[in-house]
Amino acid sequence: MSVIINRKIQDNQWSHLPDDDPVVSGDVTVSLGRWIRDRESYDGYGGRIGVRLSPGDALDDLVPFVDGLGLIALEFDKFTEGRGYSQAYLLRERHGFQGEIRALGARRDHVMYMERCGIDAFEPAPQETAGQLLGGFDEITERYQPSHDRIPLIFRKRARGTRDELDLHETSV
């Protein structure tokens, strides 16, 4: 399967292990519950370990350990699921996580919002391909408000413009 990482289509390196599959090899994500329980047993593991967050998971349990994680995967199991956007924002802005945040079950109509909140990798839901997802990023390029993307608040942008204009006006009078 192909995924999108930083807007580029790439081969997927990660597998997402159900709780009863053993951690054997390669880059794997495990559920938050399993990770809390078995975390120490992964010391010395050959591949990378990532954690999967369900929409209802609280970040608090994960926060002390985010730095060491290879990936945090956010599950979007429904078209209308919205908690992952805040989870991503908080991981980036509040907890300083700089590694990959991946949306599982991403849809074309969501990736624009997801990316702005700090999600940088996207695994498409079964009904879409990575190529199709790419079409969703730039459908709307005008942005009014900052999120993790640090777009300046629209009124700030305009206030700067207005001030320049006012200055101009005043000097010309």
Binding site: G82, Y85, Y89, M112, Y113, D149
Partner: peptide, 17 residues
């Protein structure tokens, strides 16, 4: 109007409960 613009296509709050 400020709230209208801030809330329009808000990336984090477009899929609320």
């Amino acid at each position: 109007e400020i709230i209208r613009q801030w809330s329009s296509l808000h990336p984090e709050f477009s899929w609320l409960p």
